[in-house]
Design a protein around this nucleic acid. Structure first.
Lengths: 210, 210, 210, 210
DNA sequence: TATGAATGAGCTTTCATTCAT
DNA sequence: AATGAATGAAAGCTCATTCAT
């Protein structure tokens, strides 16, 4: 009797599948329900594996969470780091927004978890490592604003960190509303999200007054 | 036999104390840990009352949550409603920000809960009533932007709802960071929040470019 | 200012009303749900009084139950005792049945509680006094059968206590089915209870064979 | 490495033991105290297992009850169904009584639960399936009476359903008294149950008059 | 007499986790 | 690598009862 490649490697393939499906299910639930409200059963039901598998691969619920966060955030920071900081400020911001678009498109839950982790630190276990990772994008924005100010690209009376938080908060909010509208429940307004998205940088750069 | 004022009103005062202390503890925990991760025992320990009192005064955990949200949000909406919508747009925004400052100062947890409810709907029970209330401030902002556009106060190529969400997202983020920094855990940056706050409207109105 | 008689005696009248309405509600619930499954709240809601009133008038749930049983059973035994035991046996049985009909008509729940207490002693608190009362009707029937046998009215090979239990069990069952059909839930059969009732004594006396 | 038969099957045996001991303890408590007055702790203490095992094997208290009732009643109905309905009526009744004897002997609690469920439907959760099962024996008796009447074996003025209920009520009562006398508490009479039992069919068939 | 408020103990159920295989 | 079975602890909630007035 002969075996196909799939049959021979079934063990290894299955292993990866199990770990990966736990990982994906965990992202989704942690992102939407938070750490404490998510149960191991939620995750294993969604992943279609047995409970002890979580402990075999990740050790505990908390370690599973830490693994998820670390992997997600590292990836996000890496993606942002690839942007050339020496670009003109306006272009730099456009790149940041473009990368954000991509991340959101490919891994919406990851960004939602990040946002929630940011807004509600008590809903998740405390982890200095994760805290540092989650602040990295803002720090990058602030650094870019400092450099832009030195080059005389933005007004002198503008605070760099304020710019970073302003930008991040506004984008984060609109993106989150977008996600909730599409995946959780219709929001009670008639929003053309696509169009709204495009206005972000314009508003930030030029303000809203005539 | 005569009674002092304290004796006569002791019953009422005590009753209010128990109900009120449950209420306050509930706000704090729901705001910071979310609905599902908050336990009745968390609340009664903090409020220093016994468990059945929650059920005596509020019926259930969910009804306690609904009561808390209703009272808080109604109050917030009422406060915002007092702003004169016919003011010049710039002044109107300044008023909105000022009222937001006041609400934040007097009832920080309430706003935090509102923000979290907004960002993480799955961490709370679904309630159409609460959803409507939480959206009210944004709707007000959008209405003001519409009216300002009609009067030619803001650029034609600016979307009204985008303005509202932009403004709300940016303010919400900075305020939340502020709250977390002061009450939950130091954020890993050297932010002069007071100063940052003041820049919000300027940024929104004039943008950041020269 | 003058008072009507009702107003003057309001205290007394109300008192009796409260005690009596607790009593009636207790009968109903104890009869249908048993002692342990009945809650004080069930009773006070039905009686439209406050909880402490139960303790004021009856001392405790168990004492309330004992009061209810004692009063009911004593009344039932008294009613049965009025039957003239020297009647011809057939007539005596008819009287017993007739009295049973009357009790059932006037106080169905009382009889149901009696039956349940009989069949399920573990569903109620143990009380020697109540036990004695509940057995009284059967003892009466057995005594009558003994006397009838002495007079040669019934066959020699018939056991007196067997007759009493046979009669009591058969009547109790049909009456209970009747009650449940009318008050709790339709039974899954097309029973003409009225007609069935009338056949009881005939069956007992003559049997069913040709 | 070799395993003894015990080692190999230990898993299965243990599993069955836990499930089975919960099942047996549940029968006993539900039968004697009713559904609502029985606590999960009653059952697990008696069965010497931990509480979550009930939920692991049966899902909930109510599903445990339903499982117990279904299994018991189905078995009882099956046993009764094996009786040949074409036997002479007198013999058929004797068979019914004999089977009842056997069931009572082997599974007394099951019959007690059945009787209690019959007499006190409000002490148990409502379940159409259980209701149907509990009525099956009576329906069988009534059908037999109908057939016997057609064959001219019993008097024309006798109602078939009345016969069934009469017979069932009388037997049920005497059997229950017997059970209580032996297992719960001595009844306050000097009853020779064995002898009494034997008189049942005779009384039903020939009546008690000379 | 009557009540609103309060409580300790206990309820059914679910949690994250571990064990033996 | 994987599983069915098991558990201590804790969840939300209700119980009979009592207290102060």
């Amino acid at each position: 009797m002969k075996y196909t490649r799939e049959q021979l490697f079934k063990g290894a393939v299955e292993r990866d599948n199990v770990r990966e499906s736990i990982f994906q299910a965990a992202i989704e639930f942690f992102a939407r329900k938070g750490f404490f409200a998510t149960t191991i059963r939620d995750i294993v039901n969604k992943a279609d594996v047995t409970q002890p598998m979580v402990y075999y691969y990740f050790g505990s619920k908390e370690q599973l969470f830490t693994s998820v966060v670390k992997e997600m955030f590292t990836q996000i920071v890496d993606t942002y780091s690839e942007i050339n900081e020496d670009l003109p400020f306006e272009e730099y911001l456009a790149q940041i927004a473009a990368v954000g678009e991509k991340i959101f498109r490919d891994n919406q839950e990851a960004v939602l978890l990040m946002t929630n982790y940011f807004y509600s630190p008590d809903m998740y276990p405390h982890s200095p490592e994760a805290k540092k990772l989650v602040w990295a994008p803002i720090k990058m924005l602030a650094d870019a604003a400092i450099s832009a100010k030195k080059k005389g690209l933005i007004r002198k009376d503008v605070d760099e960190l304020a710019v970073a938080m302003f930008f991040f908060g506004a984008i984060g909010f609109i993106k989150t509303i977008n996600y909730i509208d599409e995946n959780v429940e219709k929001i009670p307004h008639n929003i053309e999200i696509e169009y709204t998205n495009k206005q972000l940088i314009k508003l930030l750069l030029k303000g809203i007054t005539k």
